[in-house]
Each structure stands twice: as structure tokens, then as C-alpha cells.
């Protein structure tokens, strides 16, 4: 898989927090429509890597390419401009573990805000789109509610709708179900599965092995900031080759 044909390409991403190297030369090429899962023990750097994809974290060095947008970070290279960041984030949506809805705005306002301010859509257009998305995640009747009045699962669905409102080309999910009950989490995974079936390019950090196995096109196992194994989910989960992967999977699946 060459870098040029991939829709999203991360090359040699390295991230240091002071003396600690959290990401060590991580590379990943994602084609349009791919669903990649990233699994691994806590502290492995999975979330950090994901957040480098939309530059919520700035890598210490590496190259990021999404569609037509390329940026190389490191000594001697310029920082991303505000405009570049804005363009990047319009095309890359993110769903957080803790939802992060804006509590002082209604569900509808949460979904419309970026549409109006970032995409410049008019109020009516934004509202229409918001209602379509709310319908898609099954929350039409919650449009005028405040996040405080919504359950965790509902909030996460609103969060997904909010990210989709900008029509992103890639969706990043950072442990989207970790803060939810298993049953509720399953609802979210179902929404994510639908998205995948519709062809959305997705990168998912998760502990949900079922999702990684059934929905993912590829699985990446990250340990201590490095990808130790990657490939077909079914194959890796039933017959892992790397020692750390075996350790991790037996702890997670063997219960």
C-alpha cells in the first residue's frame, strides 16, 4: 500500500512528553472506507496517536497526510497555520470517551454551532441537517433538550451526530463506549457499525474486541507507543504472533 493512494497516511509519528517517549515511529496508511481498530493495554499511546490525527496533540515529529492536506512536523518545519488546522478538522471528526457536549447549549444547538460558524451554513440549512442526523442516531425527539437531561448513551449519540454534521471524510473514535454501560455501549457500536457499512473511513481506539473483530478491516495492536502487530482482525485475535499481543488478548478475552 503506497502512501499516495491511501486517503489518510501517518508516517513515522513520534511523540515525546518531556523525557518520556509516548509514541515511537508509528505509521499507518488508511484507505477510503477502511475501518481500523487500535487495541492494546492502557498507557500504550493509542489515544495520543488518535489525537495526533486531528492535531489535538502535535507530534514531536512525523508526517500526516489526509486527502490533499499534508503536514510534516519536526525541527525546521513550520507549525500548522490556523487555517490549515481548521481545514483539517473539518475533514476529520472526533468522538470522545467523555462525550464533551456543550452543556449550556441544547442538542440542536450543539450540532448546529460548527455548521454555522465553521462551514458558514445558514440557520435553516444547519437545522435541517441536524434533524436528519438526529434521526439517523435515533434521537429526533431530543432536539431541544439540554445534554444534562440526556443519558450517557444519548449524549454519545448526539456527539456522533455533532461530528457528522461537518460531513467529515474520516471519523476518529477515542474509546467511545468506555464510559458507558455494556448494554448502552452496544447501541453506540451499532451506530458505528452502520456508519462503517455506509462507507465511512474510521479509526477506532477501543477495548471492544467484538467490534474490532467483526467490523474492523484491520486491527493494530499498540504497546508502549509502538505497533507490535497488525493485520486481519480474525487472524490476530485467534492466533496472535507477538508475545505482548498474546499477553494482552488473553487478559482481555480470557475472562
Amino acid at each position: 500500500m503506497s502512501h499516495e493512494s491511501a486517503y489518510l497516511s501517518a508516517q513515522h509519528i513520534t511523540k515525546d512528553f518531556g523525557p518520556v517517549r509516548v509514541l515511537d515511529d508509528v505509521s499507518m496508511d488508511v484507505n477510503a472506507g477502511d475501518v481500523f481498530s487500535i487495541i492494546g493495554p492502557s498507557g500504550a499511546g493509542k489515544s495520543t496517536f488518535l489525537r495526533c490525527m486531528n492535531l489535538l496533540e502535535t507530534p514531536t515529529s512525523g508526517t500526516l497526510q489526509i486527502g490533499d492536506f499534508t503536514i510534516t512536523i519536526g525541527p525546521g518545519h513550520k507549525h500548522a497555520t490556523k487555517k490549515e488546522l481548521s481545514t483539517l478538522r473539518r475533514n476529520v471528526g472526533m468522538v470522545f470517551q467523555s462525550f464533551n457536549l456543550f452543556p449550556h447549549l441544547t442538542v440542536m444547538e450543539n450540532i448546529c454551532l460548527a455548521q454555522r460558524r465553521v462551514l458558514g451554513r445558514g440557520r435553516d440549512e444547519a437545522c435541517e441537517r441536524a434533524l436528519v442526523l438526529l434521526d439517523r442516531v435515533g434521537l429526533q425527539d431530543k432536539a431541544d433538550a439540554y445534554p444534562g437531561r440526556c443519558s450517557g448513551g444519548q449524549q454519545q449519540r448526539v456527539a456522533i451526530a455533532r461530528s457528522l454534521a461537518l460531513d467529515p471524510k474520516v471519523m476518529l473514535f477515542d474509546e467511545p463506549t468506555s464510559a458507558l454501560d455494556p448494554e448502552v455501549g452496544a447501541e453506540i457500536l451499532a451506530v458505528m457499525r452502520e456508519l462503517a457499512d455506509e462507507g465511512m473511513t474510521m479509526m477506532v481506539v477501543t477495548h471492544e474486541m467484538g467490534f474490532a473483530r467483526e467490523v474492523g478491516d484491520q486491527v493494530f495492536v499498540m504497546v508502549d507507543g509502538r505497533i507490535v502487530e497488525s493485520g486481519d482482525p480474525h487472524q490476530i485475535m485467534s492466533d496472535p504472533s507477538h508475545e505482548r499481543t498474546k499477553q494482552f488478548l488473553s487478559a482481555v478475552l480470557g475472562r
Partner: peptide, 23 residues
């Protein structure tokens, strides 16, 4: 988390301050 979410949906600094942080 609020700042992150605002960043993630592409709001620039001024809009972030005005619509998310300040209220």
C-alpha cells in the same frame, strides 16, 4: 474536554471563546 471538543469540530479561537468558553 470542552476546549478539545470545540477544537475537534474546527471552531477557531475566537468562536471557541465566544460560544463555548465564555458562556
Amino acid at each position: 474536554g470542552q476546549r478539545e471538543a470545540a477544537n475537534a469540530i474546527g471552531l477557531d479561537d475566537r468562536d471557541q471563546f465566544r460560544f463555548v468558553i465564555l458562556p
